[in-house]
Structure formats: structure tokens, C-alpha cells
């Protein structure tokens, strides 16, 4: 029980406390590519702190509206406890791969709801686009995780990680991992897929009316989700080398996550934004291509 709580605490702490750091590193790298100096690595922490203290301007009312930011962050943190990070997920007994997919969707839903509750048409447009992105990305995400499930013969993420760690890379898992990576790009709202936020046209999309601590929580939730999904990618598709020493494994995973996220940021910097229909077509192709991973998995490759 104690270990369970500690494990949860660890995953929550990683998601909460490290996500601004990773965001800071990404900003630094983006600046480097732009040949700028860029903000300090700690800048996201300061952003959050400042936002938490600012006045909270609310355009909507009601209990649901008030609770949305906290629920959003909580759902991301729940996702963190269901995701293996260096070791097995602390709450693995409470949810398998399908639960993880749905919980990952849950935070997106809550953000969309906040966009709609705010009463701003920009928020609604942003939410609508966010939903369409979810619709197009979800198949790729689901197929890539299902490949893992198919190979491991279980729906539990822990089982999939173990299987992958023991059996080494395979064709199907590589294709699936690639699909997951592309989906991650969209899920974390990075170019060329930041269509819902689209700061230049929609002023942040679903979050247009959020301010102060509410905005801080939403930001934090987005950063944390990006980190948790990156961890999921790394653990399920690239679990090597797995030494069995939790601290070392965690550190290795952290480094791999950094690598993945830097790659995400790199793509973000060098690409222009796609139109929504282009993005949907793109992910439809990704989803269909990832079905080939299923085919490989069925024939055991």
C-alpha cells in the first residue's frame, strides 16, 4: 500500500514537476534553431507561478465551469499514474491500455468543454478543431497500442512493456512506434498540427477566455500530458535497455523522453501549420499505414 502510494506520488511528481523543465528545454532548443538566445530553462516555472497569482477573469459561470481546470490537470495526473515510468505503472491494476486511451481522451474532452463553456465563438471553433484532430489521431494511437497488445497477448501496459523489453525490436512495433510518435506530435499540439490552438487565428482556441490560475492549470496539464505520452511511447516501444534497477531505468527513460520531445520540437520548428483537412487526410493515411503494423504483428514479425 505504501509502495503503491509512493509510486503514485513519484509518477505524479514527475508529471507535475518535470514537465515545465522539459518545456523549458524545448523552448531553448527552438530558440537555438531560430538563432536566438531564448528564455532561461526555468522560464515555464516562472510563467506558472506568475499566472497562479494573477486575477482570475471568468466569462462563464456554474460549478462545471469552475471545476474544469482542476479536473483537466487531475485527469492528466491520473494518466500519469496509469503509465509506466521507468517501472510498472503504480495503478496498473486499475486500468489497462484501453483505459489509458480513454483517460488520455478525457483531458482533451475537458479542455474542449472549457472552450465551449467560455461562451466565446473562438473557443467553440477551437474545441471543434481539437475534436476533429482527436478524431483523426485516435485511430493511429489506438492501432499502435493494439499492435503491442497483439504481440504481448495482453491488454495490460506492463505486460506489453515486458514483452517488448524481452523480445527486442520488431518490424510491427517499429511501424507502430512511428505512428505513435506522429500522433504524439498532434496530441501535444505542436506544429504542423497546432490547428486547434492556432494562436495567430484563434488566439489559443479553447483556452482563449482563460486567464490567471485557470490558464496556469490548463498550460500545466498540456505540458504534463505531452511528457506522459512521451513516456508512454518510450516505455512501450523503446524500453531498452531495461536493467531492472528502477532509478537507472527511470533516468534512462527520462533521457529518451527528452530525445523524443526534442525531435517533436524540431519538427515543430521546421514545419508550417497544415489546414485541418490536410491534417485529417495525413492522419488517415498514418492510421491506414499503421494497420500494416497489425498485419506484421499477425504474421509474427
Amino acid at each position: 500500500m505504501v509502495w503503491l502510494l509512493l509510486g503514485c506520488l513519484l509518477n505524479v511528481a514527475i508529471a507535475l514537476l518535470l514537465s515545465p523543465l522539459y518545456e523549458g528545454l524545448l523552448r531553448k532548443m527552438r530558440a537555438a534553431i531560430h538563432s536566438r538566445v531564448g528564455p532561461p530553462v526555468t522560464q515555464p516555472y516562472w510563467d506558472l507561478l506568475k499566472l497562479l497569482g494573477k486575477e482570475d477573469l471568468r466569462s462563464g459561470g456554474g460549478m462545471a465551469y469552475a471545476a474544469l481546470p482542476a479536473l483537466t490537470l487531475a485527469s492528466v495526473l491520473l494518466l500519469a499514474t496509469l503509465t509506466p515510468m521507468g517501472a510498472a505503472a503504480p495503478l496498473a491494476f486499475a486500468g489497462d491500455m484501453i483505459v489509458v486511451l480513454y483517460v488520455a481522451g478525457m483531458s482533451a474532452v475537458l479542455i474542449m468543454l472549457s472552450g465551449m463553456t467560455s461562451g466565446s465563438p473562438y473557443g467553440s471553433v477551437g474545441s471543434s478543431r481539437e475534436m476533429m484532430m482527436a478524431l483523426s489521431v485516435e485511430p493511429a494511437l489506438a492501432v499502435s497500442l493494439a499492435v503491442g497488445a497483439l504481440k504481448a497477448g495482453t491488454l495490460a501496459l506492463g505486460g506489453m512493456v515486458d514483452f517488448q523489453a524481452q523480445n527486442g525490436p520488431s518490424v510491427s512495433m517499429s511501424i507502430a512506434g512511428l505512428a505513435f510518435f506522429l500522433a504524439l506530435q498532434a496530441q501535444s499540439g505542436k506544429l504542423p498540427f497546432d490547428i486547434a490552438e492556432a494562436d495567430q487565428e484563434l488566439m489559443g482556441g479553447p483556452l482563449v477566455e482563460q486567464s490567471g490560475p485557470r490558464l496556469a492549470l490548463f498550460r500545466w496539464a498540456l505540458w504534463a500530458k505531452q511528457l506522459v505520452l512521451a513516456f508512454l511511447l518510450v516505455e512501450v516501444f523503446l524500453p531498452w535497455p531495461r536493467l531492472g534497477i528502477p532509478v537507472v531505468d527511470l533516468l534512462a527513460s527520462g533521457l529518451k523522453v527528452l530525445g523524443v520531445l526534442l525531435l517533436v520540437a524540431l519538427i515543430d520548428v521546421v514545419n508550417p501549420r497544415l489546414r485541418i483537412d490536410q491534417a485529417m487526410g495525413y492522419f488517415m493515411r498514418v492510421g491506414l499505414a499503421s494497420v500494416s503494423a497489425l498485419a506484421f504483428a499477425v504474421i509474427g514479425r
Binding site: V12, L49, L52, G53, K54, E55, D56, L57, R58, S59, G61, A67, P69, A70, L71, T72, L73, A74, S75, L77, L78, G212, P213, R214, A216, L217, W220
Partner: peptide, 20 residues
């Protein structure tokens, strides 16, 4: 976790104001 998040949200003791 929602309680935790809510705690974080209220940590700065920010004032709340309804705006159009």
C-alpha cells in the same frame, strides 16, 4: 488529484472576477 490541482489553483490566492 483534482483536490491537489484545485489546491494548486488556489495557492496564489488570486482574486476572481466575472467578466463578459
Amino acid at each position: 488529484l483534482a483536490l491537489l490541482a484545485f489546491g494548486i489553483q488556489r495557492a496564489g490566492k488570486a482574486r476572481t472576477r466575472s467578466v463578459p
